[in-house]
Measured scan of single mutants.
Amino acid sequence: EVPFKVVAQFPYKSDYEDDLNFEKDQEIIVTSVEDAEWYFGEYQDSNGDVIEGIFPKSFVAVQG
Rank of each mutant, 00 (worst) to 15 (best):
Gly48Ala: 03
Glu27Leu: 13
Phe4Pro: 00
Ile51Ala: 07
Asp18Val: 11
Lys5His: 08
Glu52Cys: 15
Val2Asn: 04
Ser14Gln: 02
Ser14Val: 02
Ile28Gln: 00
Asp18Glu: 13
Ser46Lys: 13
Phe10Val: 08
Phe10Glu: 08
Phe10Pro: 00
Tyr43Trp: 05
Gln9Trp: 07
Ala36Leu: 10
Phe40Ile: 06
Val60Lys: 00
Tyr43Gln: 00
Asp35Glu: 07
Asp45Ser: 08
Lys5Met: 10
Ser32Lys: 15
Val2Tyr: 07
Asp25Gln: 05
Phe40Ser: 04
Val33Lys: 05
Asp45Leu: 13
Gly48His: 04
Ser46Gln: 12
Glu17Gly: 10
Glu1Ser: 12
Val50Lys: 14
Asp15Glu: 13
Val60Asp: 02
Gly41Ser: 02
Val33Asn: 09
Trp38Glu: 01
Asp25Met: 07
Lys57Ser: 14
Lys24Tyr: 04
Ser46Trp: 08
Ser58Ala: 11
Asp45Asn: 12
Asp45Gly: 07
Ser46Ala: 13
Phe40Arg: 15
Trp38Phe: 11
Ala36Arg: 09
Gly53Ala: 02
Gln9Ile: 15
Glu27Arg: 03
Tyr16Met: 12
Lys13Asn: 10
Asp19Pro: 01
Pro3Ala: 05
Phe40Gln: 06
Ile29Asp: 04
Leu20Lys: 00
Ser46Ile: 12
Asp15Gly: 11
Ser46Leu: 11
Gly53Asp: 02
Glu27Tyr: 06
Tyr12Val: 03
Pro3His: 05
Val2His: 05
Ala36Asp: 14
Thr31Met: 08
Tyr12Glu: 00
Val60Cys: 06
Glu37Pro: 05
Gln26Phe: 04
Lys57Trp: 06
Gly41Arg: 02
Val7Glu: 02
Val6His: 01
Val60Glu: 03
Glu34Arg: 15
Asp25Tyr: 11
Glu27Cys: 10
Tyr16Ala: 14
Ile51Trp: 14
Lys13His: 15
Thr31Gly: 02
Pro3Met: 04
Asp49Leu: 13
Ser14Tyr: 01
Glu52Val: 13
Glu34Tyr: 15
Ala8Gly: 03
Val7Trp: 09
Glu23Ala: 08
Lys57Glu: 06
Ser58Arg: 13
Glu42Cys: 15
Ala36Cys: 12
Asn47Met: 09
Asn47Tyr: 09
Ile28Gly: 00
Gln26Lys: 04
Glu17Lys: 14
Gln9Thr: 12
Glu1Arg: 12
Phe4Gln: 02
Trp38Ser: 06
Tyr12Trp: 06
Glu34Trp: 15
Phe59Ala: 10
Gly53Pro: 01
Phe4Trp: 03
Lys5Glu: 05
Phe55Pro: 06
Phe22Lys: 01
Asp15Val: 10
Val60Gln: 02
Phe59Leu: 13
Lys24Arg: 09
Glu34Gln: 15
Phe55Cys: 04
Glu23Tyr: 06
Pro56Cys: 07
Val7Tyr: 08
Ile29Tyr: 08
Lys24Gly: 05
Asp15His: 10
Ser32Pro: 01
Glu52Leu: 08
Phe4Asn: 03
Thr31Ile: 10
Pro3Tyr: 07
Val33Arg: 05
Tyr39Glu: 00
Phe22Gln: 01
Pro11Gly: 09
Glu37Leu: 10
Pro3Asn: 05
Asp15Cys: 14
Phe22Met: 01
Asn21Ser: 10
Glu37Gln: 09
Glu1Phe: 14
Leu20Pro: 01
Glu23Asn: 09
Ser46Asn: 09
Ile28Asn: 03
Val2Arg: 05
Asn21Thr: 09
Ser32Gln: 09
Pro56Met: 03
Gly48Gln: 02
Ala8Thr: 03
Pro56Lys: 05
Tyr39Val: 04
Gly48Pro: 00
Thr31His: 06
Ser46Asp: 12
Glu17Pro: 15
Phe55Asp: 02
Val50Met: 12
Glu52Ala: 15
Gln63Gly: 11
Val50Asp: 03
Lys5Tyr: 10
Asn47Arg: 08
Asp19Met: 15
Asp49Arg: 14
Ser14Thr: 10
Lys57Ile: 12
Thr31Gln: 05
Phe55Ile: 02
Val33Gln: 07
Val2Trp: 05
Pro3Thr: 04
Val6Trp: 01
Gln63Ser: 12
Asp25Trp: 11
Thr31Asn: 05
Tyr43Thr: 04
Lys13Val: 11
Ala8Cys: 06
Val30Ser: 00
Val33Ser: 07
Glu23Pro: 07
Asp18Ala: 14
Phe22Glu: 00
Asp19Asn: 14
Val30Asp: 01
Lys5Trp: 11
Ala36Asn: 13
Gly64Glu: 09
Asp25Ser: 06
Tyr16Asp: 12
Asp35Gln: 07
Gln9Tyr: 07
Lys57Val: 11
Gly41Thr: 03
Phe10Leu: 11
Ile51Glu: 05
